[in-house]
Computed example of a mutant assay.
Amino acid sequence: MRETYYAGAYWGRRQESAEECAQRAETFFRLLAGCHPTYARWYEKTKSTKKGLQLGFDPTRDTFVRFFGKKKYQNGTDGFYFGAWTGHEEEDQGGAVTLFCGAHGEGSSNHVLLYFPVEEPGSEKVLTTPVLAGVMRAMALAWEPDWGVIVSGDFRDGLSEQGSAGTFVGWVTYFSRQRGEVPALAEPVRVEPVEEKGTLVILTPERLSGRIPEHLALGRRVQQSIETRGLLRRIAG
């Protein structure tokens, strides 16, 4: 069974209007489209694949304002939910996004998730350091999260018993400036700024796997270094 990878960005309570969330969503999808051609076209997510392929949309601010005005995309009076996919039915292509934003009630955790292709050749084309660094930058610039990660389920489980958002490192990890300063880290790890928002930590230039002992050992060393700075803590709602 192949490893499955995802990108996630998380932030705590943040009250935002439909218009504010819509502007962030437009920025996110625009930046995402520049990361890889796979992300140039989107459809509303539905239970029916046939119906979903008839629901293509242009990811603009006005489009998302319209979506967030619908009851099915509202979480009562506390935030907005939306799901989209690229229209590729095969596991070797495409991807899907879910987002939850604008929530401000006690215990709320806003987030955006992007799921990558599982099979080759799609995963081979998308799961590269340049593409993934671009994806995490898109998430950071659009949503201004507290923390973000791109990781496989196997690697996450190898470094964290509970896998709680904010508490472990991945192939690519993002830390907002509010979390603190990322320490200098030895090669092959790269540390890159994301404008004035925060910092990316990229563990390896090649695909990081939770099934390679050397990768897990590297992850544990880096995680320990970052944890001593207080950067790894659960996202508070």
Rank of each mutant, 00 (worst) to 15 (best):
W85G: 05
W85D: 02
T86K: 04
T86W: 02
G87P: 00
G87K: 12
G87T: 06
G87C: 07
H88D: 15
E89V: 10
E90R: 13
E90M: 09
E90G: 02
E91A: 08
Q93K: 13
Q93N: 11
Q93G: 07
G94S: 13
G95V: 03
A96I: 00
V97G: 01
V97I: 15
L99S: 03
L99G: 02
F100C: 06
F100Q: 10
C101D: 13
G102V: 10
H104S: 13
G105S: 15
G107S: 10
G107C: 12
G107L: 06
S108V: 06
S109P: 00
N110A: 11
N110M: 13
H111C: 07
H111E: 05
V112R: 07
L113I: 11
L113T: 09
L114G: 04
P117R: 10
P117Q: 11
V118H: 14
E119Y: 15
E120R: 15
E120A: 15
E120F: 13
E120D: 12
G122W: 06
G122T: 12
G122D: 11
E124M: 01
E124A: 14
K125P: 01
K125C: 04
K125H: 10
V126M: 12
L127I: 05
L127F: 05
L127T: 02
T129M: 13
T129C: 11
P130N: 05
V131Q: 09
L132N: 11
L132Q: 09
A133L: 10
A133D: 15
A133T: 11
A133Y: 03
V135S: 02
V135R: 05
M136V: 05
M136A: 05
R137K: 13
R137F: 11
A138T: 01
A138K: 00
A138F: 01
M139S: 00
A140F: 07
L141N: 02
E144M: 07
P145R: 11
W147H: 12
W147F: 07
V149I: 14
V149R: 04
V149C: 12
V149Y: 04
I150T: 10
V151L: 04
V151F: 01
S152E: 02
D154I: 06
R156E: 14
D157T: 07
D157V: 00
G158R: 12
Q162V: 08
Q162M: 08
G163Q: 09
G163D: 00
S164F: 14
S164I: 11
A165C: 05
A165S: 10
A165L: 04
T167D: 06
T167H: 03
F168I: 08
F168L: 13
G170N: 12
W171N: 13
V172F: 04
T173R: 07
F175N: 06
F175A: 12
R177N: 14
R177E: 15
R177F: 01
